[in-house]
Design a protein around this nucleic acid. Structure first.
Lengths: 177, 177
DNA sequence: AAAATACGTCAATAGTGCTGACGTAATTTC
DNA sequence: GAAATTACGTCAGCACTATTGACGTATTTT
């Protein structure tokens, strides 16, 4: 067939490579890695009729219990309307609850329920397993290096958001039973 | 308000942390890193009325000139119908051309045009800049470590696809200028 | 009292993905 | 040589996530 309805431009037959000074190897690896990284939880989410958006909300509500809707929007960098449906579903299914803000009663603080925490853990488990497998014969040094690299890939202005949850919680009570 | 239309379950007020044996730090970093990593090209694509799907197709057509539609589907792990619309647009806008397969004339080999190559490079440039910045005071050892980590994050069955384009092309002619 | 804020919601649209089905040309198999 | 299979294109319909704009309400700030 070789469609010639358009004034066909000449095909380039050589592959783009790193010689152009562009780091195609890592660009491509990052694509594959992230795709497979998200594929594990995606399968679990399908059972609940949830999507990746629900995962993200659930993750951050578990990571920063009590954050407000506005804070969540800021972290996810999506619009209020995009969040609305997803959040509503998570609340309706009993994974997340809203509490009136203590100082400002207009705010809704978001908290996971036991059900929501369990799902968040179930979703994170295969991802964590994958990470551990990828780091299997790596020491703490290598691990730190990976973390530094990933952090450096984030826009500088947004790095503040990342460190909101310290590696080790300093709070006293460590459970909710 | 504190909506109580549903039999509100108890909120959990403590943050999920790495103590559960789950690597939340890297999970979260990966999310932020990938989001910002894709945000640069997304802005450029918007000028063309293209989306992330166009970027992926353009990338792989440039990386593996002459791949067939079936091969592309296999790499991207999407369906024929999903690809159709995107590929058609890239062909109509003169970024990609189809050539009849040499051995099998049913196949369409996909090649970038000069225009398509230029766009692929323009899209990759900010991503590569970000990677270089993240690796600024890193040596070849660290770089290799990052690559190994990312590759290890990919499903083993799919790693074959990655190495189709070697780091250095062994072909003779090394450019199309 | 007026303005600004936090949130919820309605309506419309876009981009990307999906499944199922059908058609055509070319190749392979019997 | 006829039949089955393959590679690809396409049509129709659906789902999810995200977008923008607008409006309403409760609450806090000015």
């Amino acid at each position: 067939m070789t469609d010639r309805s358009h004034p066909t431009a000449k095909p380039i037959r050589t592959a783009i490579t790193d010689e152009d000074g562009i780091d195609f190897a890592i660009i491509e690896l990052f694509f594959f890695a992230y795709r497979d990284f998200t594929s594990d939880p995606d399968q679990i989410l399908a059972d609940y009729g949830f999507g990746r958006a629900h995962h993200r909300v659930l993750h951050f509500v578990n990571r920063r219990p009590g954050l407000t809707v506005a804070e969540l929007l800021d972290v996810l960098k999506i619009t209020k309307q995009s969040l609305a449906r997803v959040l509503k579903q998570l609340i309706d299914t009993g994974h997340v609850v809203q509490l009136q803000g203590p100082r400002d009663r207009r705010q809704r603080e978001l908290y996971p329920t036991a059900k929501g925490r369990a799902l968040a853990l179930a979703l994170a488990r295969p991802q964590s397993r994958r990470i551990h497998a990828a780091l299997e014969d790596s020491g703490a040094t290598e691990r730190a290096l990976i973390e530094r690299f990933l952090e450096a890939m984030v826009n500088p202005e947004l790095r503040a958001q990342i460190d909101i949850v310290p590696a080790k919680m300093s709070g006293k009570s460590h459970g909710d039973h």
